[in-house]
Design a protein around this nucleic acid. Structure first.
Length: 219
DNA sequence: ATCCTGCGGA
DNA sequence: TCCGCCGGAT
């Protein structure tokens, strides 16, 4: 018989959750802060993003109105701890302009947009690719979108769920068509994946011993 | 030296 | 498909 991937995915989820407990994602005080964090965390450790966000708050520069008015050099200096600060300054400016012009800086307006339309619009913003768009949709706006990242691919490739050749959208489809449409599940599942990837399923020296997914393989 | 809740451009 | 971007932790 064919493998029941839906069951196996949920079992993997429950194993991680049982060991780590709920992880309280995404850390942030507001949807806008989460959107900003989603850009700042691109290829960057979260601890460094926290420093950048703390700077923005300390200088009252987090709000879209303040951020759009700030000179590039000043914004760059504040977000410097998160790395790629010149690139990310451009990206934050683009996100801010989009939020202001398209939605009048209103999360409610943004949420009211049809999901596929909103996703396409996000992907059209400079600096927002598939993972960042989906992180914003799920964690800032509470939309039922399963976020894929390098950890997701690495962990589930290693456990035999799909081949290395799967693209972002292949993997996203794999999860979304097998899991119930549940924002809280998508939220917590991704958080568990990131934690497992960081602590155990590392790229170089995987620590399989003690991993919640140890011995969990699709034959 | 390697990695981190990637993306744009060539 | 590869390269530049970039700082801080391990």
């Amino acid at each position: 018989m064919t493998l029941d991937y839906a069951f196996l995915l949920m079992q993997a989820y429950r194993r991680m959750l049982a060991v780590f407990g709920e992880l309280d994602w995404w850390p942030g005080d507001s949807p806008w802060e989460i959107m900003v964090g989603a850009v700042l965390t691109q290829n960057t450790a979260w601890s460094n993003v926290q420093l950048a966000i703390a700077n923005l708050k300390a200088y009252n520069m987090l709000a879209a109105s303040a951020m759009s008015a700030a000179p590039d050099e000043q914004l760059a200096e504040l977000i410097r701890p998160s790395g790629y600060y010149r690139q990310k300054t451009k990206k934050l400016k683009a996100l801010t302009a989009f939020f202001q012009q398209e939605y009048d800086s209103s999360i409610e307006n943004m949420c009211a947009e049809e999901l596929p339309v909103l996703r396409d619009k996000l992907l059209g913003v400079y600096g927002i690719g598939p993972e960042t768009a989906d992180s914003i949709l799920l964690y800032a706006l509470g939309k039922p979108v399963f976020v894929i990242d390098a950890y997701t691919k690495r962990i589930f490739c290693r456990h035999g769920f799909f081949p290395e050749t799967y693209t972002y959208y292949d993997i996203q489809d794999f999860f979304e068509r097998r899991l119930p449409v549940d924002v809280r599940l998508y939220n917590e599942f991704h958080a568990q994946i990131v934690y497992t990837g960081k602590q155990y399923c590392r790229s170089r020296k995987p620590r399989c011993t003690g991993c919640p997914l140890e011995g969990f393989d699709c034959a």
